[in-house]
Design a binder for these strands. Structure first.
Length: 547
DNA sequence: AACTACTTCAACCGCACGTAC
DNA sequence: CGTACGTGCGGTTGAAGTAGT
């Protein structure tokens, strides 16, 4: 190994001797240097001398302004490199060495919650760097994949996770294509097929580039089961980010889910519902041979990183609203919430056992369906119709009220409407489930706020339009309408088995405009996106958005 | 001892975001 | 408003280390 020593006097008077001790440093002047502002920047491993220079610099100038390092010192490193070196190796209180068991567990749990948010995780692991955590996780993935183990141990349950509002609101439900990659990496063939389909659709459908994103979004929202998303194609919703880029606006995937997902209880409850018949909602990963890639739904728990990402820090998807919306309809009017509250968590042993049992013998679709809509003996359509009637009658009432407040926050006219105070309508929902009528009423009342939050960040443009059309717009974006009616109940999106009844139901639900046009053209793939008033949210949506 | 395969981890790269100009 | 710059993040790469043969 050769050594090169450079003695330099920097601006701050520090005289430095740079010993390039590493093999990489041998190549100084060749591949390991790049030019930066006329200065040849060194790359590759850091030497102790360089470390010393950097440490001195930080002592003197503090962190930050990393690009100034090379100006004020003899270091020939780019600012990025300095920052990285400092953050990962030089800064005080760094914990070195292997992760403790507690740390490992924490990482696993956090990853289940946050996905690949290494920096966020690092905040919760004092002395650890994002890079360390990332490396750990990546090796862990490989190890477990090789061993045929699930990515998350069975004991990591959603309900065990401390729900962090921070992640709830900003990270978990962002959707990003990379998450899909992440998912695909893990070898779920079903998901592969799924995303293959999505990719195909993406290639075929204009404006559908984010199909997979939205699909993930919607699956999260519905808690869709494998069997479901095997058979239907959800609507194409561009990610909020790309919506913004494209100038289009759409409420989906943009809600302040803080209010929709109020607490871990929500998922807990949902999980426990499923626990009844199947198994724990364990974010088990996908490549366990025994998984057989079944029941991805249980893998795709709402907060599973598998389908989520926080790459959209400003986006607040709507599936929270979707999720929270459902209890108004899908659970027994007598005891849905009580059930949630009283159902004891499965014993750990059960959970562990149930994973295998669940994997091996998935519950039939009927069970899943009834699981979701068990309370609706008359069926979803009836439920929708019933609700539509209520809403139709309520529409006039609502329209007659000029006060936005009296209409809840349904107008979605300003960002202020997003600030639904905790303890508002959503709390009504979670607190009062006494009878079916009350449920319906409650849900009706609560919808606007949910929708308003759903519109967060993608606020509908025009107030004047809101005044006229808000009820319709509110309805059309109702996740339960979109999801339950078209996707869950009717199967393939756009292929409606009973288009007339469905059309009626949806038309009723959506009200249609005064000229008799419905905003929903059931069964038509060529239907136009709603125009005019309703279009404030829809105008820029691709045609495929028509139901 | 030599070779290969595999693992670990430091560092780089590209991208996105925020801010100053 | 557009651009440049600084910073941070997550993904990827490749050198070094380790285990197995």
């Amino acid at each position: 190994m050769s050594y090169t020593t450079t003695t330099v006097e920097s601006d701050d008077g520090m005289q430095s001797s740079i010993h390039n001790e590493s093999p990489a440093a041998d190549s100084i002047g060749n591949d390991n240097r790049s030019r930066g502002k006329g200065k040849v920047l060194k790359k590759g491993p850091w030497t102790s001398s360089e470390d010393g220079i950097l440490i001195n610099y930080v002592k003197k100038h503090g962190e930050g302004n990393w690009n100034a390092v090379q100006k004020h010192t003899s270091l020939s490193r780019c600012g990025k490199s300095c920052r990285l070196r400092w953050a990962n190796h030089l800064r005080p209180n760094l914990k070195k060495g292997a992760f403790s068991q507690e740390e490992e567990q924490l990482i696993v749990e956090m990853h289940a919650k946050m996905g690949n948010k290494w920096a966020h995780m690092a905040e919760h692991l004092p002395g650890r760097t994002d890079n360390e955590i990332k490396n750990y996780w990546n090796t862990r993935i490989k190890r477990r994949q090789r061993a045929g183990l699930p990515l998350y141990p069975p004991e990591i349950h959603v309900e065990d996770l401390q729900w962090s509002e921070e992640y709830t609101t900003s990270n978990i439900f962002g959707v990003d294509r990379r998450r899909n990659q992440d998912f695909l990496q893990l070898g779920n063939s079903k998901a592969n097929a799924l995303f293959d389909d999505l990719n195909i659709a993406t290639s075929l459908l204009p404006g559908a580039s984010d199909l997979s994103d939205m699909f993930a979004c919607n699956m999260l929202g519905t808690g869709a089961t494998t069997s479901r998303y095997e058979s239907y194609m959800p609507p194409i919703l561009p990610s909020p980010k790309r919506l913004l880029e494209s100038g289009s606006r759409f409420p989906m995937c943009s809600s302040n889910i803080k209010h929709e997902f109020q607490s871990p209880e929500h998922f807990q409850n949902t999980a426990q519902q499923k626990n009844h018949k199947s198994c724990s909602i364990s974010p088990c990963e996908v490549d366990h041979p025994r998984n057989g890639n079944r029941h991805s739904s249980d893998m795709m728990i709402p907060n599973s990183h598998t389908f989520t990402d926080g790459m959209l820090p400003t986006s607040k998807p709507i599936f929270g609203a979707v999720k929270l919306e459902l209890p108004s309809f899908q659970y027994s009017e007598t005891s849905a919430f009580d059930l949630w509250k009283t159902t004891p968590p499965s014993p750990q042993s059960d959970l562990v056992d149930s994973v295998d049992a669940y994997i091996q013998s998935p519950p039939p679709l009927e069970i899943e369906e009834s699981d979701c809509f068990s309370s609706c003996d008359t069926g979803l359509l009836d439920m929708l119709l019933h609700e539509a009637k209520i809403k139709t009658s309520a529409k006039h009432r609502l329209l007659s009220s000029s006060s936005e407040k009296s209409f809840g926050s349904a107008t979605c006219t300003t960002d202020a409407t997003l600030n639904v105070p905790p303890g508002g309508e959503t709390q009504i929902k979670s607190g009062e489930f006494e009878d079916s009528q009350k449920n319906l009423v409650t849900s009706e009342v609560s919808i606007p706020s949910q929708l308003s939050t759903a519109f967060a960040g993608n606020v509908v443009k025009t107030e004047e339009l809101d005044q006229v059309w808000e009820p319709k717009r509110v309805d059309i974006t109702r996740p339960d309408v979109l999801l339950a009616s078209s996707w869950l109940d009717q199967g393939c999106f756009g292929i409606v088995r009973d288009s007339s009844s469905m059309s009626d139901a949806l038309a009723l639900l959506l009200g249609g405009d005064d000229t008799g046009n419905s905003y929903v053209t059931v069964g038509s793939s060529s239907g136009q996106a709603p125009r005019g008033v309703g279009s404030c949210a829809w105008t820029n949506m691709p045609p495929v958005w028509s139901l």
